[in-house]
Structures are given as C-alpha cells and as structure tokens.
Amino acid sequence: MILAITAIALLVAMAMTLLRAILGPSIFDRILAANAFGTKIVLFLGVYGFLTERPDFLDIALLYALINFITTLAILRFFESGVLFVKSDEESN
C-alpha cells in the first residue's frame, strides 16, 4: 500500500517534470527536466521492483544511475565546440 503511494507520488512528480520539459522555456530547463526525469525513473524502478516483489530489476536502475549523466556531458561538449549553440533562438537573452 505504502509502496503504491510512493509509486504514485513518483508518477505525479514525473508528470510535473514532463510539463517542465515540454514548457521549457529555455533548452537548459528541458535538459534539467530530462535529467531529473532520469532520477525519478531510477527511484521508480526500485519501488516498482519491490511493489511486484521482483527486486532483480535493480540492475536497470543501477545502470541509469551510472550512465544517465553521459548525455549531459555530451551536450556540454557540443556546446564547447560551438556547433549546437551557434544558432541561438528564443532563449538567447
């Protein structure tokens, strides 16, 4: 029961994060939201594993915890090289 409540709370938080990712307004807000969504999924997978009494799903959560930040680094790298940010649009102020 409590596990179910936790799962639902995480789902609601995911929905809010999703809203932020869609609303933006800047690209950084979207990346922040996507990153936070990753954390939420990690926790959700853990809770879901316990909810269905199969905690062996933890490997997937562990994988996300380990490599979810690689994409953020890739974004920084492309930023440094100036390829993706040359065309600044609505968020340039």
């Binding site: 990712a21 690209i27 979207r30 939201a33 879901y48 994409t71 993706l84």
Partner: peptide, 20 residues
C-alpha cells in the same frame, strides 16, 4: 536540439514500460 532532449525522456519512459 529540444527534440533530442525530449526523445531522451521518451526512451526512459519506454524502459519503464518494458519493465512493467
């Protein structure tokens, strides 16, 4: 660029759905 970010969320969600 924003599509790529959203697509990342799409993939996170699909993984969760496959688990469930």
């Amino acid at each position: 660029f924003a599509s790529v970010i959203l697509f990342g969320i799409y993939s996170l969600l699909s993984a969760a759905i496959f688990v469930s």
